[in-house]
Amino acid sequence: MASSLSGIIDFSKPSLHACIAAIAFNPTAWNIVARNEYRNKTVTRIFGGNARYGCYFLALCIFSAGIVRDSLYHRALLEQPKLKLLPEPLDTLLPAALFILGQTFVITSTWALGITGTFLGDYFGILMDHRVEGFPFNVLRDPMYVGSTMSFAATALWYERPAGLIITAYVYIVYLIALQFEGPFTDMIYSKRESAKAESKKEL
């Protein structure tokens, strides 16, 4: 198995190790920070009790870490073996279309959710009034993660790096694992709010 992969991925490159570490670090770190925030309000306390400022700070951290991760991915790709993956003109048309579609999912989901909805505002107690059901959430359950994965794949195809497709599969697995933690926890937060509302109505 290792010998068959040696022609398409160079495991000796430090840039590959840094990229793999960054991909795993980002969702892991933010889940840990967000859960701590929900239970202990650590970030909110740093900002004098202002949950919104705390959420904006976390959003900036997440966005910055994403840029670093993408930069590491780009650098890792350029140091990996190159191999023709698609015939012309698909070698440019397909990755371009995939990237545009992926970024469309990412940007429109961010627009629909807003800053606090996108960047874990519910862990800060900043809850949305209702579930977003318009595009792209009427097409995909997790458009941001899917769109990001599509962009990783598009970049690998554009630079003709088979290693990038392997990294993309790894990205998707990391996202799936992260969703196993994020989804149920977020559902619990909103469920508790609905229960609190129901109790308030009973008291009235």
Results as ranks from 00 to 15, higher is better:
residue 8 I to A: 05
residue 34 A to I: 02
residue 111 W to E: 14
residue 26 N to F: 09
residue 80 Q to I: 10
residue 177 I to Q: 07
residue 120 L to C: 06
residue 5 L to R: 06
residue 27 P to V: 02
residue 5 L to G: 05
residue 138 N to D: 14
residue 175 Y to I: 01
residue 147 G to A: 10
residue 199 E to Q: 11
residue 11 F to A: 07
residue 184 P to T: 04
residue 95 P to R: 01
residue 70 D to T: 00
residue 40 N to E: 12
residue 152 F to D: 14
residue 62 I to V: 14
residue 138 N to S: 15
residue 196 A to M: 07
residue 16 L to S: 06
residue 129 D to T: 04
residue 123 Y to R: 03
residue 187 D to C: 06
residue 178 A to K: 07
residue 50 N to M: 10
residue 95 P to E: 03
residue 108 T to D: 12
residue 56 Y to F: 06
residue 163 A to C: 01
residue 139 V to E: 03
residue 195 S to R: 15
residue 48 G to D: 09
residue 84 K to T: 13
residue 171 V to D: 02
residue 118 T to Y: 02
residue 96 A to M: 13
residue 91 D to G: 03
residue 6 S to R: 06
residue 108 T to K: 10
residue 204 L to A: 13
residue 10 D to W: 09
residue 49 G to D: 13
residue 89 P to E: 02
residue 168 T to D: 06
residue 14 P to Q: 00
residue 180 Q to R: 15
residue 162 P to C: 00
residue 172 Y to C: 07
residue 159 Y to P: 07
residue 30 W to D: 10
residue 169 A to K: 01
residue 10 D to I: 04
residue 183 G to N: 13
residue 33 V to E: 00
residue 27 P to C: 11
residue 1 M to W: 11
residue 57 F to C: 15
residue 201 K to T: 11
residue 87 P to D: 12
residue 8 I to P: 13
residue 74 H to G: 07
residue 187 D to R: 15
residue 68 V to N: 12
residue 52 R to G: 01
residue 142 D to H: 15
residue 32 I to T: 14
residue 69 R to K: 14
residue 161 R to A: 06
residue 146 V to P: 08
residue 37 E to P: 11
residue 75 R to V: 07
residue 149 T to Y: 09
residue 16 L to I: 00
residue 90 L to D: 09
residue 9 I to K: 08
residue 193 R to I: 00
residue 150 M to K: 03
residue 165 L to Q: 03
residue 100 I to C: 15
residue 75 R to C: 04
residue 126 I to C: 03
residue 25 F to K: 04
residue 4 S to G: 00
residue 171 V to F: 10
residue 3 S to G: 00
residue 183 G to R: 15
residue 133 E to W: 02
residue 41 K to E: 12
residue 194 E to M: 14
residue 108 T to G: 01
residue 73 Y to Q: 08
residue 31 N to F: 12
residue 150 M to Q: 07
residue 170 Y to P: 07
residue 139 V to D: 04
residue 123 Y to V: 05
residue 37 E to V: 03
residue 104 T to A: 15
residue 164 G to P: 15
residue 173 I to G: 01
residue 40 N to T: 05
residue 31 N to E: 12
residue 124 F to H: 09
residue 88 E to T: 14
residue 35 R to C: 03
residue 168 T to V: 03
residue 77 L to K: 06
residue 67 I to C: 11
residue 153 A to F: 13
residue 64 S to C: 15
residue 199 E to I: 08
residue 110 T to E: 10
residue 20 I to H: 03
residue 137 F to T: 05
residue 64 S to G: 14
residue 125 G to Q: 04
residue 199 E to F: 11
residue 166 I to R: 04
residue 6 S to I: 06
residue 126 I to R: 08
residue 193 R to Y: 02
residue 154 A to Y: 11
residue 60 L to R: 05
residue 178 A to G: 08
residue 25 F to G: 00
residue 186 T to L: 10
